[in-house]
């Protein structure tokens, strides 16, 4: 089934300089009861965004009108914890196309790639440069190019290349998904089963 195509974006960013952001913060378990993939964006970072009476917390970055954009920039070990793909759906549903961090948890990274949300792993130094740029100018623009695998702070021209699995890159830039690929090898699966 075709998925969203991702090649290149250039946008302002939302900074979240916190480390070890786990999937229970991204989407708390009590909001995992939906049976479709839509609507999770409202509960993205729910308990950081809203107080117990559902009023927005003014000091949280998503409630700060000065910050916005298609890229979330977060501290290291982003997405640790549960396997809930709802964390990737919530982020995509909210409107992010990419997440930048200096380290990603394994399952989150896979889930993101399977949902057209690009995880971009940068060095600690470059992450700091992005945070510095955004806190100096809330409208600082970041460019991410998946085809040539680089991320750039547009104002200063500073850039870094990033790694991405070549297969997942091909999927994202062409809009394929894993099931299409495995189904194309179906005779190998039945062969494997009979050989066991």
């Amino acid at each position: 089934m075709a998925t969203k195509i991702f090649k290149h974006i250039q946008t302002s960013v939302v900074p979240l300089p916190i480390e070890n952001i786990d999937t229970d913060q991204i989407i708390p378990a009590r909001f995992l009861k939906a049976t479709t993939r839509e609507g999770f964006g409202n509960n993205l970072f729910r308990d950081w965004r809203f107080d117990g009476n559902d009023n927005p917390k003014a000091d949280f970055v998503l409630n700060n009108p000065n910050f916005g954009g298609k890229i979330l920039v977060a501290g290291k070990n982003f997405g640790c914890g549960s396997s809930r793909e709802h964390a990737a759906w919530a982020r995509a549903d909210y409107g992010f196309d990419a997440v930048v961090s200096s380290f990603f948890a394994d399952i989150f990274k896979g889930n993101a790639l399977n949902n057209g949300l690009l995880p971009v792993q940068v060095s600690e130094d470059f992450l700091k440069k992005i945070f510095d740029a955004v806190f100096a100018d809330e409208h600082a623009v970041i460019e991410i190019d998946l085809v040539d695998q680089f991320i750039k702070i547009v104002a200063t021209g500073e850039q870094e290349s990033f790694e991405v699995n070549p297969y997942k890159k091909a999927c994202m830039t062409n809009g394929y998904d894993d099931i299409d690929y495995i189904l194309s090898k179906k005779e190998l699966i039945t062969e494997f089963e009979t050989s066991k």
């Binding site: 793909e85 709802h86 990737a88 399952i107 896979g110 889930n111 399977n114 949902n115 179906k186 699966i189």
Partner: peptide
């Protein structure tokens, strides 16, 4: 993740 749950169900 759930996309992979679907993958394993299908294949």
């Amino acid at each position: 993740g759930t996309s992979q749950v679907e993958q394993v169900m299908a294949t």
